[in-house]
Computed example of a mutant assay.
Amino acid sequence: MRGSALLRLALSPLVLVAIVLVAMLLPELTGVDSARSVLAVRYADADPDPRVIAAIRADLGLDRPLWQRLVERLGRLCTGRFGTSWVSGDPVGAQLGRAFQVSLSIMVTALVVSFAVGCAAGLLAARRPGAVADRVVSACNRLASAVPEFALAPVLVAVFAVGLHLLPSSGWRGPANLVLPVASLVPVLAAPVAAVVRTQAAALRGENFVAAARARGIGEFRLWTRHIARPALPAALSLVTYKAAGMIAGTAAVETVFDIPGLGRTVVDAVRAQDIPVVQAGLVVAAAVALFVGAVGDALHLVVDPRSRGGAA
């Protein structure tokens, strides 16, 4: 485990470089004529004038060799200049910054709730393996793992927004708009955490230190929440951060369903509109965030898991 975590940490910069190169080459890889896309977006010109097309190509730098365009794009990216949107004309950096703040609030809230729910469910199931609570938690885990975010989100809208009128179905105006998106993400994240905590806690409940704690008169609640839960948390923490690295795709689907102006929906809308500067910057930001979160998870596992430290000795 320690070796694989170190390998992922070492490869993260190389993976990010590869993703940046692919993003910078998007106009050439997709075969989209950037000049015609800009013309269609800005002027809706169905029969473009060759002179106008040539002027746009010169303005975008498309009349220069590929290697020069690539170096210029990488230079702008390294200096934090993402360019301007072809659709809105706004700076891409400011647009993605606002969208990322929205997505970050959704992801952080979902991760915290998922970790708490998963740990509580896993400990409850581990108290009496095979009992009713254990079977219920296992069934909920299987159901949650089988239902993706984009399938659960419309169901929640139909029940709590359309049917019961308790929560808003779309938009981003206040804390109430956070509830359903987070509820759509929590089950698929909490299920593996609950399974890991259940396995770890069920194995720990028969250890000698648990019997010694009971002999000292420690209550069951304190025993499970402090003495058994604490050794089981490193694996759960590592898992939830690993899942968070791949959470951006699920967040994008949820943002699209709930019409939330987050990073995922911004990139999806940019793809539909062929707004290449926004797509390029969005992919780089999403990849960087995913790799950073994954690296944090691997680093946390190496720090908090005593077996990893022991293996390093």
Rank of each mutant, 00 (worst) to 15 (best):
L11H: 01
L11I: 10
V15G: 12
L16E: 09
I19F: 08
V20W: 05
L21C: 11
P27W: 02
E28Y: 08
E28G: 00
E28T: 05
L29I: 11
T30C: 00
V32H: 11
A35F: 02
A35C: 03
V38C: 07
D45V: 12
D45T: 13
D49M: 09
P50M: 13
R51W: 00
L62R: 11
R64H: 11
W67I: 11
L77I: 15
L77S: 11
T79A: 08
G80Y: 08
G80P: 10
F82P: 05
G89N: 12
D90E: 15
P91T: 09
G93W: 09
A94K: 13
L104E: 02
V112Q: 03
V113N: 03
S114M: 05
G118D: 03
G118I: 03
A120P: 00
A120S: 12
G122D: 01
A126S: 13
P129R: 07
A133W: 01
R135L: 14
V137C: 00
A144T: 11
A146I: 01
P148R: 02
P148V: 03
P154C: 07
V159Q: 07
L164K: 00
L164W: 15
L167P: 05
S169H: 04
R173Y: 03
G174I: 09
P175C: 06
A176T: 08
P187E: 12
V188R: 14
L189K: 02
L189E: 04
A191W: 12
P192V: 10
V193F: 12
A194M: 10
A195H: 06
A195I: 07
T199F: 10
Q200M: 13
L204T: 11
G206E: 06
E207S: 14
E207Y: 06
N208R: 14
A212R: 13
A215Y: 04
G217R: 07
G217A: 07
G219R: 14
L223E: 10
R226M: 09
H227G: 12
R230E: 06
A232T: 09
P234N: 06
K243P: 00
G250M: 10
A270V: 06
V271C: 02
R272L: 14
R272D: 13
I276H: 05
A287R: 04
A288S: 14
A288H: 06
A290I: 09
A290G: 12
A290V: 08
A290K: 05
V293T: 08
G297V: 01
D298F: 02
A299Y: 07
V304L: 15
A312S: 14
A313V: 14
